[in-house]
Design a protein around this nucleic acid. Structure first.
Lengths: 221, 221
DNA sequence: TGCCGGCTTAAGAAGTGCTTATGGCGCAGT
DNA sequence: ACTGCGCCATAAGCACTTCTTAAGCCGGCA
């Protein structure tokens, strides 16, 4: 999952980026409003964290202009401006959620999770496919009723595959979501990860589509 | 589909080449501006990825000169972070799209897909012709409602034929798109490839036009 | 009949993915 | 700060698939 973070404060930006990357999100950190607008229009991100006090271009303007261009990417607005005034404006402008600084990272993560779920038209923070259950709130996975312990990377991989269950997910797409571009990763890192996941979930849950990628079938074969 | 990549940075160039080849594109990687101009003038590529900071000759000059020579090949310009200025110039000079470094490969691939489709006047990520469906997002092909497993080469061939469905596609054009310039390949590699594809899709989907090439008819005969 | 272009098949080469082992790194507990 | 442990990326060897080449075939046409 790819998140665009728009934040001009160096310290806060770095902290958020670090925290999110630790949760296996891929983060592109932009400091400038103009850049942010361009990036938003591309619609390559799954979610945008937008600070309102920006140089170059005000955050609200960015949001308004993006929505005017029919960009539907979920946006969480972050602002230091306390007060209901700014908040109302933010939601009017098309924000999906709202955080008032200072906030706890825990809270931010929870919002991200619920928003990315909601964006897929699901009400609950839980994905069930066949004998598999993945709970995004508690980060717990069960398989045939038993709780399975997964590492962060394994969890992230499984989440992507389950969100697109029944569809093939390209290698490239997986590598990008899991590792990002900057982090050029060895050729078989993904394969090793798939291997460890299969060890825990049985060897027929994740299907290989040679030359293209992987998928988890919606109906067990 | 054949892409010319013009990039002097060894690491980035290699990364992009690897990534694109993994997606079954054929990539010719050039490091020099002069070379790039020559290659562009040949018009053998379907798309060009052009870095602006180049030794030998500036990227923008290459682009301007190529356009002056009536080269219409789509060009995506890649430029460093600070280059908003350069971006405007790039589009003025005749670029079809641009990317700000560092960018995610996802983004690059999306641009490539949309650009190559725009060039053909198609809007969607899916091509349907007769009983055939080809989904570029998931790399899946269905024939008479059933999912067909294709290898990457077969997929690439089918994609080209479907994108030009109803029109004859010349042998050389196919070989060039599938194998690139450098990669000189035996003369019947294509025929073998067509053969395996026909085995999976039935023998009357791909029609041979003796002496010229192949085509997939828009209306089943 | 003989030639040319394309088809088919088989086999070796190249590529892709799986598996296991190894070592580095960060985090927690002392 | 030191140590132990778990996570994760890398590397190397193996199995299997896919690709290219080569060789022989068929059918149309002069």
């Amino acid at each position: 999952m790819h998140i665009i973070l728009v934040e001009d404060d160096a310290q806060l930006g770095a902290a958020i980026q670090r925290a999110l990357e630790r949760l296996a999100y891929t983060v592109s950190w932009l400091r400038d409003g103009r850049e942010a607008l361009i990036a938003l229009r591309d619609e390559t991100a799954d979610l945008v964290l937008l600070d309102l006090g920006l140089p170059g271009k005000d955050g609200l303007d960015v949001l308004v202009e993006a929505r005017r261009s029919h960009v539907t990417t979920p946006v969480i607005v972050m602002t230091a401006r306390d007060g209901l005034q700014a908040r109302v404006h933010g939601l009017d402008a098309g924000a999906d959620d709202y955080l008032i600084k200072p906030f706890h990272l825990d809270e931010l993560c929870a919002r991200i999770r619920s928003l990315s779920r909601r964006a897929q038209g699901l009400a609950v923070n839980r994905i069930e496919v066949g004998a598999l259950t993945l709970d995004l709130g508690t980060s717990q996975v069960t398989f045939r009723g038993e709780v399975i312990e997964l590492t962060r990377r394994e969890f992230a991989l499984l989440q992507i595959l389950l969100e697109r269950a029944g569809k093939l997910v390209r290698r490239e797409s997986l590598i990008n979501s899991l590792y990002g571009l900057d982090n050029v990763v060895g050729d078989n890192a993904l394969e090793v990860l798939v291997h460890t996941l299969r060890k825990k979930l049985g060897y027929d849950t994740v299907r290989t589509v040679r030359g293209f990628g992987y998928m988890i079938p919606r109906e067990p074969a």
